[in-house]
């Protein structure tokens, strides 16, 4: 593994949300109804809950993919909705992993991993070298020139993980990363994510509806109807009556 995160790991919250509200359709559809949470640097946190509970919406807010309706949301003390350059934040501070992989179908695996690097002042050779290293780290060095359509689901998600690490982010936001995978591939992907998180102390926020997947985290936040209903450690949750 050649990946090294350049982000300094200083104690303190990476994310702080206070009374975070997100409404759609002029307030007729509330998605988040007052979320307050704090996520420390290097933590691995799972957010679980039934479909439509607002967990992906929360992840979108944390990743500056959408703006909250009200409330406060900070990344290392800076208000995310007020970021001067949200693209830079998305490109360099956080990395996204999606359930549907979201690889670009007309580009090879290696090219897909290079896509986020275009905002950095790297040469073509540097981009190629780094993509090769990242794909090697996720076990895809034999698939560099393949199009995503030629890959299995597990391989696609590995490619997406490699891409999420392209710009050396300190935070990974994973939205149902095993949602489209069979159980064997799901285990492998979770092992990979856990390894990356522990080896490099990346802050990992994972959204899932699968308790087994969520149980890999150090902390589990449970959501329902746009609210956090409980927080626990994996051992607690598996024995919780709500589980």
């Amino acid at each position: 593994m050649t990946y090294d995160s350049p982000h300094a790991h200083v104690p303190g919250p990476v994310f702080e949300a206070d009374q975070l509200v997100k409404e759609y359709d002029d307030g007729r559809v509330p998605a988040l109804r007052g979320i307050t949470l704090r996520i420390e640097d290097g933590e691995f946190v799972s957010i679980i809950g039934p479909s439509g509970c607002g967990k992906s919406t929360l992840l979108n807010m944390l990743g500056a993919l959408d703006r909250p309706t009200s409330g406060s949301l900070k990344f290392k003390g800076t208000s995310i909705p007020d970021l001067a350059d949200p693209a830079k934040y998305r490109g360099q501070e956080v990395g996204f992993i999606f359930q549907a992989f979201h690889l670009l179908p007309t580009f090879t695996v290696e090219e897909n991993v290079q896509i986020p690097m275009f905002e950095l002042p790297w040469s073509r050779a540097q981009r190629k070298k780094r993509a090769g290293e990242l794909l090697d780290a996720v076990g895809l060095s034999h698939r560099l020139g393949h199009l995503p359509t030629k890959l299995s689901g597990g391989e696609r998600q590995r490619a997406a993980i490699a891409r999420s690490l392209a710009n050396e982010p300190g935070v990974l936001l994973a939205d149902e990363p095993t949602g489209n995978l069979d159980s064997q591939n799901a285990v492998q992907i979770m092992d990979l994510l856990c390894r990356l998180q522990t080896e490099h102390r990346i802050t990992l926020l994972l959204v899932s509806h699968d308790l087994h997947v969520a149980s890999h985290a150090n902390r589990i936040i449970r959501m329902k109807d746009g609210l956090i209903v409980s927080e626990s450690r994996p051992g607690d949750v598996t024995h919780s009556p709500q589980a």
Binding site: A87, R90, H102, I115, E119, R163
Partner: peptide, 16 residues
């Protein structure tokens, strides 16, 4: 639209 969304999520600036 979907592809542009991916590019935005991956940190591409709007001007790019």
């Amino acid at each position: 639209t979907h592809e542009i969304g991916i590019l935005l999520a991956l940190g591409w600036k709007r001007r790019r």
